[in-house]
Amino acid sequence: MYGNDFGQADAPGGRATTPHPLNAAETPDYTDALAAYFDGLIEEDQRVEPRDAMPEAYRKTLIRQMAQHAHSEIIGMQPEANWITRAPSLRRKAILMAKVQDEAGHGLYLYSAAETLGVDRSELLDKLHSGQQKYSSIFNYPTLTWADAGAIGWLVDGAAIMNQVPLCRCSYGPYARAMIRVCKEESFHQRQGFEILWTLSRGTEEQKAMAQDAADRWWWPALQMFGPPDTGEQASGGHTAQSMAWGIKRFSNDDLRQKFVDMTVPQAQKLGITLPDPDLAWNEERGHWDFGPIDWDEFWRVLKGDGPCNEQRIRTRVQAHEDGAWVREAAAAYAAKQAARQQSEAVA
């Protein structure tokens, strides 16, 4: 059962208390009724579906977030694809190709989910290419060694999962459902990344050093992935409060970051990797790991375009898109010809 529209009124989790206003002609104050309907869905933790009326700001927030998420999957293919032709064994080559392909699939699900909000994939891609929409800034860092393929899986996908598991309960149905499949695959990727580093950390001295170096370079950008502080004195505004009220976001950036640190520190210990933070210490009182200050200046600098790979990532994407224009045009022309042929056959 997908659509709320078909929910059974008397079933648990149905929409008994939130009847849909039928139409403008029969409903006085129709706009208010729609708003009340939407508020009721959110209050009862129901899913909003594409056919439901929703505030324009909610729709715009979702389009921005889902597009950014889809763009991150697509741009995120690049740092890992960088190692496909050089993977050190055929088994690793196969796993990496499958992984990069999964990311392409995630991008497609998410663009499709975003399209249910009345935008077109090509419109979103244009915005990515022109810099009007962002992608996760983590992908503006380079993959310098094979161990980076492991660190991306372990830390970057690990952080992404922290962010994405709560999105499986996001108030917007198509997004929530897309995230269920995405999360299953991402958790494979996280384990695969860990296993790359596990193998390296049991290997030669050079391999161990490679693993440590990758963790040194990816740890802080991974913590930045959760976004700037949004609780306590350091809170820097942003979209958190509104997104939480709408049931799009379930936990604050800071809570998710803490969960990630708490999950990852014991894994680093198992790997024999020292995380590059002298302030990292177990806090008995809080029941959490304390960690040192994050360099938010670096975060903003990279986000605004001054990172090692910002230019390169977009250039590669735009080049692929432009080089492929004649192919997409050919596919459209062929489809049109086929349709015309079928029509004339039907007439005949």
């Binding site: 499958a98 392409a104 080049q319």
Partner: peptide
């Protein structure tokens, strides 16, 4: 494998991969 991220459309990145 060299095609991944360079294909004419995302579906084709997947297919060639």
């Amino acid at each position: 494998g060299e095609w991944l991220t360079h294909a004419p459309q995302i579906e084709e990145d997947m297919a060639l991969g």
